[in-house]
């Protein structure tokens, strides 16, 4: 067990960070699964209206940290989170914070597309219905169509909105899941390896989509593909064995990594 109080250093404050508002501030975050110390003293500032990529070998804690930003770890037995994660200056682990409202602001897209066994329309309408966002039926239709358009799926499905969402191809399903997440107007979108179950063409479409919508959201993407991180993100964080090793501008990270471990990883020496 690592008991040393060593904190991840954020000294090299990324250039891009300076130019933007900070959306998420995490300080001294620890995550435990029972006895396992999965995230160790992690501190990070994540900017708004940009894509931040989390990379690192399997089991390094990047998905764990991602899931603590919308408190999805709450659903796992024996999972404990300490430290502060602030979204817009408000601690999301405060006792009086309503996790339902938090998750309406922090959307999530999963590794494997998981559309509900409902129609395409109902999949996207799910969030707005739950949160009572739409005032009328036409309002709801506008939200659904708008979200599908933003997820660049509308043209492909406009004639069959009443067909089951599970009948779409893998890439379309994942874009449907993105549309579903967008439909409740989140500020942050977490993506947990959104392309790992997709073929290269479908992956490219998702990447394009991320690029199109990044102006409006704070997007965090966990990925195993360094090329993908390089293509879609402005900032990259490298995780290793529960530590945040390095966080900086994507361009710098892949050309002049500061840490030996980062260099080894991105040049393929381990992981």
């Amino acid at each position: 067990m690592d008991a040393s109080p060593q904190k991840s250093t954020l000294s090299n404050s990324p250039r891009i960070l300076a130019a933007r508002d900070t959306k998420i501030v995490a300080s001294d975050v620890n995550v435990y699964y029972g006895e396992k110390h999965a995230i160790k003293h992690l501190s990070i500032d994540i900017p708004d209206r940009a894509v931040s990529a989390f990379i690192g070998p399997s089991g390094c804690g990047k998905s764990t940290f991602l899931r603590s930003i919308n408190r999805m770890n709450d659903t796992i037995d024996g999972c404990r989170v300490t430290g502060d994660i602030l979204v817009d200056g408000k601690n999301i682990y405060d006792r009086d914070l309503d996790v339902v409202q938090l998750r309406a602001r922090v959307g999530m897209v999963f590794q494997k597309p998981n559309p509900f066994p409902k129609s395409i329309f109902e999949n996207v309408a799910y969030g707005p219905r739950i949160h009572g966002i739409a005032k009328s039926k036409t309002d709801l239709e506008e939200i659904v169509v708008g979200s599908l358009k933003k997820a660049s799926l509308f043209e492909e499905v406009k004639d069959r909105l009443d067909h089951p969402g599970t009948g779409l191809s893998g890439g379309q399903q994942q874009r449907l899941c993105i549309a579903r997440a967008i439909a409740v107007n989140p500020e942050i979108i977490l993506m947990d390896e959104p392309c790992s179950a997709l073929d290269p063409i479908a992956s490219a479409r998702i990447e394009e989509l991320i690029d199109e919508i990044r102006q409006n959201y704070c997007i965090i993407i966990v990925t195993h593909s360094m090329q993908q991180a390089a293509r879609v993100s402005q900032l990259t964080a490298f995780f290793h064995l529960g530590d945040l090793v390095e966080f900086g501008d994507t361009d710098d990270m892949f050309t002049t990594p500061q840490d030996k471990r980062t260099q080894d990883y991105i040049t393929g020496r381990f992981g």
């Binding site: 999805m72 659903t75 938090l102 309406a104 959307g107 899941c177 409740v184």
Partner: peptide, 12 residues
């Protein structure tokens, strides 16, 4: 995964 999808949308 379906339950996770729903929880992540903020469903109780």
């Amino acid at each position: 995964s379906l339950r996770d999808g729903s929880y992540a949308m903020g469903a109780t």
